[in-house]
Structures are given as structure tokens and as C-alpha cells.
């Protein structure tokens, strides 16, 4: 009973942060800022939902799979964000006008 309540609370928190991530995806100006919102909030939100499932189901057929999924998400989401942002910069997608510094562009010659 208590584990169900805690599970539902965790799932609600996860859904809330997933919602913030999607809101950030719509509101923030350019690719890089959107990736930030998408990576952080969606990683945490999805991990929260999976942790809620784990708390509700306990150790069992359903219980341990969410833990493995959390580990995989925590390991892979940052890598995919890194790869997408790097590819976007190489494809010369412009940063938003509010950008105040771009060291990556300045060091372009040094990289090769």
C-alpha cells in the first residue's frame, strides 16, 4: 500500500519533469539550448517514472528491469546529446543571437 503511494508520487514527479523538458523544447531558442532541456529533464523524468515502477513492483519479474533501464538511460542520454550538438556545430547551425561567446568557433583552425 505504502509502496504504491510512493511509486505513484515518483511517477508523478517524473511526468512533471518530462513536461518541463518538452516545454523547454518548445520555448528555448536554438538547438543547443533545446538539447539541454531535453537531455536533463527527460533523463530525470524518465528515471523517475522507472524508479516509481521499481518501487511499486519490488524485486521480481517486473522490478529489476527498470533499474537496468535507468542505468542505460543515464549512460546513453548525455552521449547522444554530445553527438547531436557536435554534429549541429559542424553543420554550421547558428547559435541564437543572444549568445555572448563561442570559443568552439574561435578555435576552429586549431582543431584540425
Amino acid at each position: 500500500m505504502i509502496s504504491e503511494i510512493i511509486g505513484y508520487i515518483l511517477i508523478s514527479i517524473g511526468l512533471l519533469f518530462n513536461f518541463f523538458g518538452v516545454l523547454g523544447l518548445v520555448r528555448l531558442p536554438d538547438v543547443y539550448n533545446r538539447l539541454q532541456a531535453a537531455t536533463k529533464c527527460v533523463t530525470f523524468g524518465t528515471a523517475g517514472i522507472l524508479a516509481g515502477v521499481f518501487v511499486m513492483k519490488g524485486y521480481g519479474v517486473m522490478g529489476l528491469k527498470p533499474i537496468i533501464c535507468i542505468i542505460f538511460i543515464l549512460l546513453t542520454a548525455p552521449v547522444s546529446a554530445h553527438v547531436i550538438s557536435r554534429a549541429a556545430h559542424r553543420a554550421k547551425i547558428k547559435l541564437t543571437d543572444e549568445t555572448i561567446i563561442d570559443k568552439y568557433e574561435e578555435d576552429k583552425e586549431l582543431r584540425k
Binding site: D30, L95, T99, Y104
Partner: peptide, 13 residues
């Protein structure tokens, strides 16, 4: 940042 109406961001690399 996302909820704030004015989006107080100052992005850069």
C-alpha cells in the same frame, strides 16, 4: 528557466 516568462538565458560555448 523554462517557466520564467522572460527566459533569462545567456548562452555561449
Amino acid at each position: 528557466l523554462v517557466i520564467h516568462p522572460k527566459l533569462p538565458i545567456k548562452p555561449g560555448i
